[in-house]
Computed example of a mutant assay.
Amino acid sequence: MDETILRVPSPEDLFRTSRRTEEQPWTASRPPAGEMARVLGTTPRRIVTEISGSSIAHWKHGELHDVVEPMKDHVIMTYIGTMQRLERRTGKTLASGTARPGAVTIIPSGTSSRWDIGGAVNVLQLYLPHAVLERVAAEADTAGSAPLLERTGHLDPTTSRLLMSAVDVLDGSEALDALFRQQLAELLAARILSVHTGAPASYQPASGGLSPTALRRAIERLRSDSDTDLSLAALAADAHLSRFHFCRAFKQSTGLSPHAWLRQHRLAQASTLLRDTDEPVVSIAVALGYGSQSAFGAAFRRLTGETPSEWRRRAR
């Protein structure tokens, strides 16, 4: 992953006020990473805030011996290549665990703890507004709302893998990656409700796929080359469904999630342009909505095993 550091505010500015920048479209009056920036004494390497208010941030920080004050959002985190002992004191309660691949830590909103971490940590954090959690529970027909459980280095490979999948979409194609991050936040919220609350959520299965009309509208929106809104909210609204049930029904109809369908569509477009035109790779990347040639190349290689130039030479 490209280690370029985004232009982000200082820890003091993050803590005291919200700034809106091109890279960081903050949606709340207080930035979701503000308290973390103050405690960790650094800024996130990358951070993306979605229209729902959920944010994903990538941090690298050193040892920590400080109190994390109550945060507005729930924080769910997992670790990249890290092996560190964690201690968390809440009142008279001491919890300990290990920051390691496959483990997650959860800080419910409004809680405060003292943390002691003895060395460097490489971590991904999801800031999940409680309103998103409540909405997903309602859309999944989950009755009641159990408290979110505190977790400290808790082994949960499924949740960890879901959050780790955000690593490759903090940069790149704006529409494609934004759609994936929105779906990711929905999936993580459902997973959290299922295994990290006082009572597991029981979800009701979708009754079937999209109607032919709804499916046609969704595909037309996803295929659009204009500035059409590709958010889950817009796609679901066209189908008159909640986002939760739209994703389920779309996959039943196509065999793919909206993000996977759009990814394959973009790949097909790229393949046609690479094979049938002499357009430079950088021009194709721009035409398909990628922020840079390197981001397009990385996405293309993940799907085909070849760089765009290698694929073009072989296809011809």
Score class of each variant (00 low, 15 high):
residue 89 R to F: 08
residue 59 W to K: 02
residue 89 R to L: 05
residue 72 K to D: 12
residue 82 T to L: 09
residue 108 P to M: 02
residue 114 R to F: 07
residue 73 D to K: 05
residue 127 Y to H: 14
residue 72 K to G: 01
residue 101 P to D: 13
residue 73 D to V: 00
residue 113 S to F: 11
residue 66 D to T: 07
residue 124 L to E: 04
residue 80 I to E: 15
residue 72 K to E: 14
residue 70 P to S: 08
residue 111 T to R: 12
residue 79 Y to D: 03
residue 125 Q to A: 11
residue 82 T to V: 08
residue 125 Q to V: 01
residue 94 L to V: 11
residue 75 V to F: 14
residue 67 V to P: 13
residue 97 G to Y: 03
residue 104 V to Y: 07
residue 73 D to S: 10
residue 68 V to I: 13
residue 111 T to Y: 06
residue 74 H to I: 04
residue 76 I to K: 05
residue 126 L to K: 01
residue 76 I to T: 09
residue 70 P to N: 07
residue 121 V to A: 03
residue 57 A to C: 06
residue 114 R to N: 06
residue 71 M to A: 12
residue 89 R to M: 09
residue 60 K to I: 02
residue 104 V to E: 06
residue 83 M to V: 00
residue 117 I to H: 12
residue 106 I to P: 04
residue 58 H to Y: 09
residue 115 W to P: 02
residue 108 P to S: 03
residue 61 H to C: 04
residue 59 W to S: 02
residue 129 P to Q: 09
residue 103 A to N: 13
residue 107 I to S: 10
residue 68 V to A: 11
residue 113 S to P: 05
residue 123 V to H: 04
residue 127 Y to I: 01
residue 128 L to C: 02
residue 123 V to F: 02
residue 91 G to M: 06
residue 77 M to V: 01
residue 71 M to L: 12
residue 110 G to Q: 06
residue 81 G to C: 03
residue 58 H to L: 03
residue 76 I to M: 13
residue 63 E to M: 08
residue 121 V to C: 02
residue 115 W to R: 04
residue 99 A to F: 03
residue 93 T to D: 15
